[in-house]
């Protein structure tokens, strides 16, 4: 089954297709459209249910998985800390473990393009047509970081991005944001947007994904997290809501001090 990107291929099993992913990407096995997979079911009576069944998050189980090389990781850390720098308001991106988050995401389903259509033919496309690369997000990161490193090396006498002064780092990032740097097969503007989005995801997502360490980003903005019942607060207009933030796997108050 090497024809997954060949539009003229004959019929092949859906399960095999899911296992392959549209461009032969790994890691999409046994999941159908992002949900609990399994075989076609004949359902009557009630929707299926069994003891202990829960489509609980599993990405966090991949803690420790890594995609980035040391050099790539240094770029991600330095760049993320310019997007969310340290100050007394709250943690910087790296203080919130955002690089860990990004590394795990790139090693996981997101990085593999689990929810990206990556088959050809490929064309540059218009901005309004969105992502048109043949690369998975992880490969896109790899290509982008390498191209940025080349760019920075040329402009700054062989230095790495992480070694630049903060103002120079900001200048590079602004140039990427404006699409003013040629990154070859990667669109600078699109990469910057993806990176900024991923940094904010790592900063504000549930801590079980590896970022938002100690829920400090939630504390900084005043978001109580996975709190389900606000009934008593609905009519208390303008009052602070002093609930301790809680993640899907709890908070310190759940455990022995």
């Amino acid at each position: 089954m090497t024809h997954a990107d060949d539009p003229a291929r004959g019929m092949i099993g859906r399960r095999q297709l899911f296992a392959l992913g549209a461009a032969g990407a790994l890691g999409a096995a046994a999941r159908h459209d992002g949900m609990v997979g399994g075989t076609s079911e004949r359902i009557a009576g009630t929707l299926p249910w069994a003891d202990g069944q829960a489509d609980a998050p599993d990405d966090a189980i991949r803690a420790g998985t890594a995609f980035l090389t040391t050099a790539e990781r240094a770029f991600v850390t330095a760049a993320a800390d310019r997007l969310i720098p340290p100050d007394p308001t709250g943690p910087s991106a790296s203080q919130a473990d955002v690089p860990d988050f990004i590394d795990r995401q790139l090693a996981g389903g997101f990085g593999h393009g689990e929810h990206y259509y990556l088959a050809g033919p490929w064309a540059k496309g218009l901005p309004s047509q969105g992502y048109q690369s043949r690369l998975t997000p992880a490969a896109y990161y790899r290509a982008a970081i390498a191209a940025v490193a080349d760019h920075v090396g040329r402009e700054h006498g062989g230095k790495a991005f992480a070694d630049l002064a903060p103002t120079d780092q900001d200048a590079v990032l602004k140039a990427l944001e404006a699409g003013k740097v040629d990154l070859g097969q990667v669109d600078a503007k699109q990469f910057f947007a993806m990176f900024l989005q991923n940094v904010k995801e790592g900063y504000f997502s549930d801590p079980l994904y590896g970022g938002n360490r100690d829920m400090a980003a939630w504390k900084m903005i005043g978001f109580p997290g996975a709190h389900y019942d606000y009934s008593e607060w609905v009519t208390r207009h303008g009052e602070p809501v002093p609930l301790a933030p809680v993640g899907l796997t709890g908070r310190p108050g759940w455990r022995k001090a």
């Binding site: 966090a60 803690a63 908070r251």
Partner: peptide, 13 residues
């Protein structure tokens, strides 16, 4: 007894 999974996901501090 019910052969259920353990709670192994990381827990926030």
């Amino acid at each position: 007894a019910l052969r259920l999974t353990d709670a192994i996901l990381p827990r926030p501090r």
